[in-house]
Design a protein around this nucleic acid. Structure first.
Lengths: 187, 187, 187, 187
DNA sequence: ATTTAACCGAGACGGTACGTCCCGTCTTTAC
DNA sequence: GTAAAGACGGGACGTACCGTCTCGGTTAAAT
């Protein structure tokens, strides 16, 4: 219905103001701080307005994830090299980048709101996807096992042990997978 | 109306009553439900009493972990067989046993209360310790890497992807480690 | 269960609702009943709302006193007659009118919260003021002494002895003051 | 920590210990502070013990009043002089002596606990009694009116206006009563 | 130019939970 | 019998958020 009146002018930059602050809050204080009250206090945007834009708590996380860049910078030719590059990228994103905070936030949020688990699955799968693709292209037998063999130590180090990811071990794991691949194909 | 004053009769064993209910709550509704109010509603124990016993939220988790059994039932002779047994045990504990819930709870809790991270580290390390010990006894070069190679896929499956642990892949990972050990010693 | 959120419809006039009930409570149960909890139970207004309007206990008393009428209905010509009329009015207000309850409440409240003493002084002085003015107009030597000679027996009867004020004695006291005035001027 | 159980040695004189502290508390913080909890904190006497000795809050006040000395130091011969002496005594007791605090406490307490009003009446009447007796002996017509004419200004000054009693005015009131008596008897 | 819809701000309100404090009763242990 | 220590249920307190709703004011199209 387009009667007389102002059509959907996306109007102010409220959204970006709030989401920027939301990201800062998420990184500095965790997912529990992502509350309308808190965002109002930080941004000055009225509480009412925030509720209008993101009625449910999970909407903040969803919006943040939607905004976050998913760049997979890998148009190389060498499949093995690509795998190493992808590993390097993930290590970077897990260190001081929002990925670690996002993972914690998603675990926390879905413990309170089951409707967040889907979000969490999507986010983790988006992290794993490049590895699955690369390993599938390499002809690995059990793609999922190989993917987790490379990625899961990094996640556990970050999420459960608060250790900095060990780049060397990560590449070592990649080489193991590739070695097993060669041995298998050579057999 | 029961009027003021302590109820007559010998006091019920408050601690076990509450902790039992707390465990049930943790398993059924997650860490966010582990609140004095909720425990009062479930157990009938007065809110005040609960605060008296566990003044801080983290005290519930600490008490539950302290109570939970840490049985490591493995006095076998064959080191490799022991590793497989330990793996089986962990798979069991991650399925329908409290371990998964504990991990989620610890991640959630330490996101709100930094003083819980120490608890989380201790708990995860207690999970990893048997593997570290077994692999060290076997003479593995990088014990930590091998431990995570076996355990971390299981944790990621449980914690982030809500998939049931894949026992077969777990044992496969154990064999890979053992095979690499043999190859390394043969080299 | 009505769910969260503000109830629909234009908000009832909360302030008058609560203050009316507060006055009734004060008269029927004394100052100790003037508590947010109690007012919530009586009026149905949410406890939170009550705290928003009157954050401190003394705010109830202040609001009630501010609302209570301070009518001094006396534009007569005969000064002596005016004094008797004022005395009658005070006797009325001390019987079954809120003044007695206010006095008790103010004594009670200022025993717990010293910031109420100022309120009490103001209230008592407002009671005494008409007498001071009338006696000053009559040229009484020690206005304060004469004022208290008339008023204080009434206050003590009401406040300390729970006796109904004795109108006859009050007027007798007025006449004594006037007589002494005549004797003094005649001397 | 000495653990539960009655401590060794002959029990200290609990009653006087507690009542002494109670008096101090009453004078320094008002009647609202006369609570078992508070007295335990001050005296170290176990809460249980305090409840056993004074089950109701009003029991503290009753005990304190019972202990307080009611000395009426007046074996003179001259009735008028005795009245002035009694007035002086009351002025003294209302200044920095417990009487003022007792009065406030009794008003406060009876606003919460109606069973205290009887106590209050008794206490006030004990204050008035010497005056009533003296005035009756002098043959005053309306004893009650004369009593209040002398005493009530002092009480109002102390209780409602927080002013120091005006000794001069008090004696002036006494003389007024005596003068009226002479005039009446001379008529 | 005037309508008209979309948006924002400020704030009131009912409600739930929190963590604390105190109350008054009861138990247990010790003298 | 009396005292101390302490556990317990209960009630109230004051605070913090939450989520909903009302009421104005502004702005930018569309008529």
């Amino acid at each position: 219905m387009t009667g007389p009146g102002r059509p959907a002018g996306p109007a102010a930059d409220t959204e970006t103001t709030v989401l920027t602050a939301a990201l800062e809050l998420l990184l500095s204080e965790g997912a529990a701080a992502l509350t309308p009250q808190r965002l109002h206090a930080v941004t000055g945007v009225a509480r009412t307005t925030i509720y209008r834009h993101w009625p449910l708590p999970r909407d903040f996380l969803a919006a943040l994830i939607a905004v976050a860049p998913h760049e997979s910078p890998m148009p190389s030719g060498d499949l093995a090299a690509d795998l190493h590059a992808e590993t390097d990228l993930l290590c970077d994103r897990l260190r001081d980048k929002p990925v670690g905070a996002f993972l914690r936030a998603l675990v926390t949020a879905s413990s309170a709101d089951p409707s967040c688990t889907a979000l969490r699955h999507r986010y983790v799968n988006d992290l794993l996807e490049p590895f699955r693709a690369a390993l599938a292209a390499l002809g690995v037998a059990d793609v999922e096992e190989a993917t987790l063999a490379i990625v899961s130590p990094l996640l556990v180090d970050t999420l459960l042990l608060d250790r900095r990811v060990d780049r060397e071990r990560a590449h070592h794991a990649v080489e193991d997978v590739l070695a097993r691949l060669g041995a298998g194909s050579a057999r």
